[in-house]
Simulated scan of single mutants.
Amino acid sequence: MKFVIDDACYAYDTIFGDFGEISALPGRSIDKAAVKEADVLIVRSRTKVNQALLEGSKVKFVGSTVAGLDHVDQNYLQDNGITFFSAQGCNSMAVAEFVISAIVNLADELNFDYTKKTLGIIGVGNVGSRLAAKAELMGIKTLLNDPPRQDSEDLLNFVDLDTALSADIVTFHTPLTFDGEHPSYQLLNEANFHNITNQTILFNAARGGVINENVWEKTQTKVNIIDCWENEPNINQNLQKDAYWATPHIAGHSVDAKFMGSFMVYEALCDFTGYKQDESIVNLIAPGILKVKKDNLKDTLNEIYDFKQDTVAIKNIGNFEDYRRNYPIRYEWHHFDSTTVLPIV
């Protein structure tokens, strides 16, 4: 088989090398000519997978090693008999750790007790559920909003959007959708931005476009933490300048998450082809026991990974894409033997 793979996919040569011939390219460079003779296409978020890319090609399987779906025209794939798999949930722990790290840092720097704050989580899927579990373990009251889940599961503890937006800390974890009963595009917009006050800590670690950035840059908040932007990599520099953390869409970029994205696609491809899995691949991430000897949670989390370095790295937004592609090694918390108890759930 012939593969075209985004060269940012984790350990693609080790994980997929036994299947056949691999052509690895930067995601933005994968074009119609590159995929014409390919049987399998494996991408991250920077390749638009649609008719313009695939028409006339031999591709029969598309795997996406990231959780987002807005870069893939699933209707086109289905209509043309192309099997599609997306690694939903692969980065959920990494994103939840990003949000908790920010809250712990802010609590220390702004001198507040996070157990006295409310956390509005908008989108309670893979990421939002993990974040809610960590927050509750830390004694933070959560206000959960997810209309699709509430409609299908009748969850009595969920709240409406205005209530979630009224929380002290508001964080978005929805996919980016434009249609259906509950589209998330500009979910926070001119009509409901009044819920956000000058005391709100506001996150976007979901997708660019979930929050109307034109309104956001004119709205005074207490703090903004922005990892996902409209028009990446040409991000809103007014929001970037004023953000506490302005990071280049890397909240989910832990080593564990990137491995899991590739591994989940590998499992799906084995099912598709009937190929017997190599049992050693599941153990590819093995850093051993990593020790952190700090006597408080903030210092512990920052020794594990300090997200401020990501903000500094893209002060020149020309570094946005290169930094994402060459992101520093960052392991998730469960790898660490820590003096301070970590909120691992």
Rank of each mutant, 00 (worst) to 15 (best):
A257C: 07
D18F: 05
T174M: 09
A11C: 04
V265L: 01
R325H: 14
G17W: 04
C90H: 12
Q51N: 10
L53A: 08
I304C: 03
V4S: 10
T311I: 09
L202E: 02
T171Q: 02
V255E: 14
L131W: 05
Q186S: 15
Y266K: 08
I329M: 10
V210C: 01
I30F: 14
M1V: 14
P233T: 03
G123Q: 08
R330N: 05
F272M: 09
I317H: 12
D108E: 14
G274I: 10
N157M: 12
V40A: 06
A107K: 04
V215A: 12
Q309G: 13
G63C: 07
Y12Q: 03
S152W: 02
I281Y: 03
D108I: 11
T118F: 01
E303F: 07
L188F: 09
R149V: 05
T221R: 02
A132R: 10
D278R: 00
I285Q: 06
Q237K: 13
L176I: 05
D337F: 09
N145I: 06
D113L: 03
R324M: 07
T339P: 04
N50A: 07
K241E: 15
F320W: 03
N326K: 12
E109T: 14
W216Q: 15
D179E: 15
N80V: 08
D160Q: 08
L156E: 11
I225L: 12
N105I: 11
I15Y: 00
L119R: 02
T174R: 10
I22G: 03
W216L: 15
A94H: 02
N296D: 15
G208V: 00
A167S: 14
T174F: 08
N145G: 07
R330L: 06
L188R: 14
I317F: 08
M260R: 13
V62K: 15
V255Y: 00
A251F: 01
Y76C: 08
V4A: 11
K258A: 08
R149T: 06
S92W: 07
I5G: 07
I304E: 00
E97N: 02
D160L: 09
W245K: 03
A167C: 09
Q199T: 11
G20A: 10
G261A: 05
V265S: 00
L54F: 04
D295C: 14
K298H: 15
S254E: 12
D256G: 08
A164D: 02
C270S: 04
I201Y: 05
T163L: 12
D160G: 12
C270F: 07
R325Y: 13
L106Q: 04
T219Q: 10
D154E: 03
L25A: 13
L25V: 11
A205H: 02
P148D: 00
G128K: 07
N189P: 10
G180R: 13
T163R: 12
L155S: 02
S64K: 08
D322S: 11
S254V: 12
N214M: 14
N231W: 01
I122C: 02
I5Q: 08
S57H: 06
D18H: 08
A286V: 12
